[in-house]
Simulated assay, not measured.
Amino acid sequence: MTIPAVPSIKNGCLMVRGGVILTQVPENVVVTPISHEAAFIGACSETPSARLVFQLGVLEFKMWWMIPSFGESGCDVPTETQMLLLEAREASEDSDVPVGISESKTGKTFYLVVLPVLDGNFRATLQGTTVNELEFCAESGDPNVQTYRVLEAVFMNSGDNPYKLMRNSIEYV
């Protein structure tokens, strides 16, 4: 069995390498693969705005930030976060249980970078909520520049080596 590394949404969960990264992913979230390990994540709104905030899903695990900051769940992600580097475990090939972000010692360790980027006239940042949801905010900074969708606002990539992952991710972006 080959475990796909490209981020995808399955049964309301954002999956990478067979592991659950986010749960309760809303239906308006879109994943656009760009390689076998990387994808852009975006979302659509029903009404246009110069500032859109989209829920990506519930995030619960230990994480490390650029500043650096440490946390254990989505509520620990401060507003205006510009990058997340996550450590996760692949689902075991002989198990039907997706592992993802957990304290489990089974499965191979991998890393995931979540990088908000520019999408047209909109810049994106990450933020957490008090109920452990991870959100991204896309804003133009101009009330006259509005949209209802940003489809490439967040870049996500995975790899086995965090240093190579960062270098490869910057090359993609």
Results as ranks from 00 to 15, higher is better:
T2Q: 12
I3V: 15
P4K: 07
A5G: 02
A5F: 14
A5N: 08
V6A: 11
S8W: 01
K10V: 13
C13W: 03
L14M: 11
L14R: 09
L14F: 08
V20D: 09
I21D: 00
I21T: 07
L22A: 05
L22C: 08
L22Q: 04
T23F: 02
T23S: 15
V25A: 00
E27T: 15
N28G: 04
N28M: 04
V29E: 01
V31G: 06
V31A: 03
P33Q: 03
S35H: 08
H36P: 12
E37Q: 11
F40Y: 14
G42V: 01
A43S: 09
C44M: 10
C44F: 02
S45V: 04
E46N: 15
T47V: 11
P48H: 06
P48V: 10
S49F: 02
R51N: 11
L52P: 01
Q55H: 12
Q55V: 08
G57I: 02
E60F: 08
F61A: 14
K62T: 09
K62R: 14
K62G: 14
K62A: 10
W65V: 09
W65N: 15
M66Q: 13
S69P: 07
G71A: 06
G71W: 07
S73N: 15
G74R: 02
C75N: 12
C75L: 02
V77I: 15
V77F: 11
T79L: 09
T79Q: 15
E80S: 13
L84M: 12
L85W: 01
L86P: 05
R89G: 02
E90R: 08
E90W: 00
A91N: 13
E93P: 14
E93Y: 11
D94L: 10
S95T: 12
P98H: 07
V99W: 04
V99E: 10
E103C: 07
G107S: 07
T109F: 01
Y111C: 04
V114P: 02
L115D: 00
L115H: 07
L118Y: 13
L118E: 11
D119L: 05
D119K: 01
G120S: 12
G120N: 12
G120H: 08
F122V: 03
F122G: 01
R123L: 03
T125H: 10
L126R: 07
L126F: 02
Q127A: 09
T130H: 09
N132D: 13
N132F: 08
N132Y: 10
E133V: 00
E133F: 09
E133R: 14
L134H: 10
L134K: 10
F136P: 01
P143F: 03
V145T: 13
Q146F: 03
T147Q: 00
Y148C: 12
Y148W: 13
E152A: 10
E152K: 11
M156G: 00
M156K: 00
M156P: 00
N157F: 00
S158P: 05
G159T: 01
N161A: 00
K164S: 03
M166A: 11
M166H: 09
R167A: 08
R167L: 06
I170V: 15
V173F: 09
V173N: 12
